[in-house]
């Protein structure tokens, strides 16, 4: 599992849900001019106060467009989207008071130093000079950027710039913190630091909506995950429930010389409890129930079938597996 403090949020009990929704979309739709298919198609979502909600899907799934509509940058073609009860399409200026945004690119003010980037954000959101100054100092401490306070933002590494953008986004205590692919392009160390940070913010009550195409990120960080593809919501639940939903507890990947389709067929028939199977590069992948003595059973079955095994691996189902079962393709395709 991830660092401590991460993944502590769970969905609110069913009865509480409607009351606590901070974000609500109804039949939300976006069709870009000239595009054949809508980028987001009749999306119904609710995000509850205090949760980390993930929009998971490959590029072009409609996650960024959804986040764009919620953050008033993309004008919906139909349906409704609300933040804190404010219709984002009709009252964008009001909705912006409630949102903190960390975009994919570095959008720090290059003309200002690290401290000033925070300070002027506070002023922009109506905080007085004193309060802004105080909070800028406080956040630089909290985000371990204090010694860079006077530095140019050009001097920051990718991970530090990202942290500064998160600090800036939460400066005005937004109802929702939006992060668009927050760890894309970050090194593994910076990614862990960011996950930890987001977990801490969430533990303090910060509602977070993030888009990602990293299943590990969705799995470790998010209380609930919406899996999207081609603008549609395919599944929505906790990562654990999503993984349970596929009905298998183990994924067995076999690599062998020869025809992959034949390998898949033979092995799926020879082993007990196989719920789904598919070919992968150089072999086959089986989803099955029952991990007991699976390796010896699989090796024995392969021997009996005359299959020349090159490699065999056993893993738990992941959100990737869920995505594959829903769409027939891999998340990174």
């Amino acid at each position: 599992m991830g660092p401590s403090g991460v993944g502590t949020s769970v969905p609110a009990p069913a009865g509480e849900r409607r009351r606590d929704a901070v974000i609500r979309t109804e039949q939300l739709q976006k069709r870009y001019p000239g595009a054949e298919a809508p980028a987001v198609d009749h999306l119904d979502l609710e995000v509850f106060a205090g949760e980390i909600f993930g929009l998971l899907g490959p590029n072009g799934a409609g996650k960024t467009t959804t986040a764009g509509m919620l953050t008033t940058r993309v004008v919906p073609s139909g349906g409704r989207a609300e933040i804190g009860g404010v219709d984002v399409a009709r009252h964008p200026a009001l909705a912006k008071q409630l949102s903190g945004i960390v975009s994919q690119q570095n959008t720090l003010d290059r003309q200002l130093n690290v401290w000033e980037n925070l300070y002027f954000h506070g002023r922009l959101f109506g905080m007085g000079s004193r309060r802004s100054r105080h909070r800028a100092d406080e956040l630089l401490q909290q985000f371990q950027l204090a010694r860079w306070a006077k530095a140019s933002v050009y001097a920051l590494s990718g991970g530090m710039a990202q942290r500064l953008m998160v600090a800036r986004a939460i400066f005005h205590e937004p109802a929702v913190l939006f992060l668009d692919e927050p760890t894309a392009g970050l090194d593994p160390q910076s990614r862990l630091v960011l996950w930890e940070l987001l977990g801490e913010l969430n533990a303090q009550g910060q509602t977070i909506l993030l888009t990602t195409h990293y299943m590990e990120e969705a799995d470790q960080l998010c209380g609930r995950v919406a899996i999207m593809d081609h603008g549609h919501l395919l599944a929505l639940d906790t990562p654990a429930a999503l993984k349970q939903s596929i009905g298998a507890d183990t994924v067995l990947t076999l690599k062998a010389a020869g025809d992959a389709a034949e390998l898949r067929e033979k092995m799926a028939a020879a082993l007990d409890g196989v719920t789904a199977s598919r070919t992968v590069e150089g072999g086959a992948q089986l989803q099955l129930r029952g991990i007991e003595r699976l390796v010896p059973r699989a090796v024995a079955a392969a021997e009996a079938l005359g299959v020349d095994l090159i490699d065999l691996s056993v893993s738990e189902p992941s959100l990737e597996t869920v995505f594959i079962n829903l769409t027939g393709k891999e998340l990174r395709d």
Binding site: T8, G50, G85, V86, A95, L124, G126, A175, G205
Partner: peptide, 26 residues
Amino acid sequence: VTETPHVIGTRPPRSVAAASWTALGA
């Protein structure tokens, strides 16, 4: 966290006019 969520204000704290005015100044 979910029992009694410490929810940071989920309603816009200020009118658009007031917020715009300070934003312009900033």
